[in-house]
Simulated scan of single mutants.
Amino acid sequence: MKWLESNLVVIFWSVIFGEVVGYIGGTLEQMTWKPLQLGILMAVVAVVAVNGIALLSRDDQASSEK
């Protein structure tokens, strides 16, 4: 259950930060801002990154304990 809760928090905050950064970046570069597309992309990238880092660190800890 902790894994699910942590991933939901990561998804929530990545969407929020992605929207803010996307809006500011789109305004500065005078590009169109697509909030739904940006939110989904940031959520996927964040979940992959967080779970990838956790998986790599778990494998690293297991190999160093041997």
Rank of each mutant, 00 (worst) to 15 (best):
V47M: 09
K34E: 05
Q61D: 08
Q61A: 15
K66R: 11
V9W: 12
S14L: 09
L4P: 06
S63A: 15
V15L: 09
S63D: 11
I11S: 08
N7I: 08
L38S: 02
R58H: 08
V10R: 10
Q61I: 15
V50P: 03
I16R: 08
I24N: 03
L8E: 09
E29H: 05
L36Y: 09
Y23L: 02
A46G: 14
L28Y: 14
V48M: 12
T27C: 01
T32R: 05
S6E: 08
V20A: 01
V20N: 01
W13C: 12
G26T: 00
I11P: 00
S64M: 09
K34C: 05
S14F: 07
V20M: 01
N51A: 14
V50L: 04
D59T: 15
W13E: 03
E19W: 10
S14N: 10
S63N: 05
K34F: 01
L4R: 12
E19H: 05
K34Q: 07
V21E: 05
G25L: 11
I16V: 15
P35E: 06
K66G: 12
G22L: 00
L28A: 10
V9S: 08
A46R: 01
I40S: 03
M31G: 05
A54Q: 04
Q30P: 02
K34P: 03
V50D: 07
M42T: 07
I11Q: 01
V15C: 10
V21S: 12
P35I: 01
G39I: 01
L36H: 08
V10F: 07
S57D: 03
V21P: 05
M42I: 02
S57F: 14
G39E: 01
L56D: 07
V47T: 13
N7R: 13
W33C: 00
G39R: 01
A49E: 05
I53P: 04
A54E: 07
F17K: 13
G18K: 04
